[in-house]
């Protein structure tokens, strides 16, 4: 596998918050172009902290992050943030502009896109998540599932190379969950999905990583990891009652 095909590389990443709480203790991971990978782990494992490093929101600890070969550092932040699209857990945090279309335009406008190009990007991003009919509505008038899909569109409009989603299925009803899964599967993008929703990880991501205690403790095909009872138990991961990863989706 050549270096060019590695879209995301994390090497020896360690990080402690200013209050002294150390969240990451040397994380290594590699994502290849077009891969869909689930980052699994219990609450407090450092998943969100890791996600915030991927576009340089957090930095300053040991180790390095490279996005399509470009190291994440101060002078590359703008390009890194274009390449890595981060979708936050609460869509109300992500959608802050008065209308859906203006919110989707926010990212590309910050990149200097204007006029027809901007309109085209907004329309295209909303089309990809099936929300083009709601372009002129205020985000507060949308359902939670619709807001989550718009949040994905706000990042798609920046034409990223990697999409990083923080708990994409949280608080969604089953129909919204399925709709979001359909949207995510239709995207031709490298995807890193931070979650503790194991069936969702299995449905969307052929490969999974387990993060616990600030290190990657397992990396492999999602189905294999979910079948490893001892591994799941050791890291506070649990399958929902009655869920059989061997038979699911086959």
């Amino acid at each position: 596998m050549s270096a060019a095909e590695r879209v995301l590389e994390v090497e020896g990443l360690a990080f402690a918050y200013p209050d002294g709480h150390q969240a990451l203790f040397g994380v290594d991971l590699r994502l290849h172009r077009g891969e869909r990978v689930a980052l699994l782990g219990p609450n407090g494992a450092g998943k969100t902290t890791l996600a915030l490093h991927l576009n340089g929101i957090l930095s300053g600890g040991a180790g390095q992050v490279r996005v399509a070969g470009l190291p994440v550092e101060k002078r590359t932040l703008k390009e890194v943030r274009r390449r890595v699209g981060l979708v936050f857990q609460d869509p109300d945090d992500q959608l802050f502009m008065p209308t859906v279309a203006e919110d989707v335009a926010f990212g590309p406008a910050n990149l200097g896109v204007r006029g027809h190009d901007l309109e085209h990007r907004v329309h295209e991003a909303l089309r990809r998540v099936g929300m083009e009919a709601h372009a002129d509505r205020p985000p507060s008038h949308l359902s939670y599932g619709q807001r989550r899909r718009v949040a994905v569109a706000t990042v798609l409009a920046m034409e990223p190379e990697v999409l990083v989603l923080d708990e994409p299925s949280s608080n969604l009803d089953p129909a919204s969950r399925r709709e979001l899964a359909e949207v995510l599967l239709s995207l031709d993008l490298t995807l890193l999905m931070v979650t503790h929703d194991l069936p969702y990880a299995l449905e969307l991501c052929p490969r999974a990583l387990v993060l616990d205690g600030g290190v990657v403790v397992a990396d492999g095909p999602t189905r294999d990891l979910l079948c490893d009872d001892a591994l799941l138990r050791a890291h506070r991961l649990e399958l929902p009652f009655g869920f059989d990863p061997v038979r699911a989706g086959r």
Partner: peptide
């Protein structure tokens, strides 16, 4: 806290201090 998270979401989408023109 929400304000801080919104700020992070803005920075993640390339915000550098100036709001884009609404056109």
């Amino acid at each position: 806290e929400r304000g801080e998270r919104v700020y992070l979401a803005m920075v993640s989408r390339g915000w550098t201090g100036a709001m884009p023109d609404l056109g």
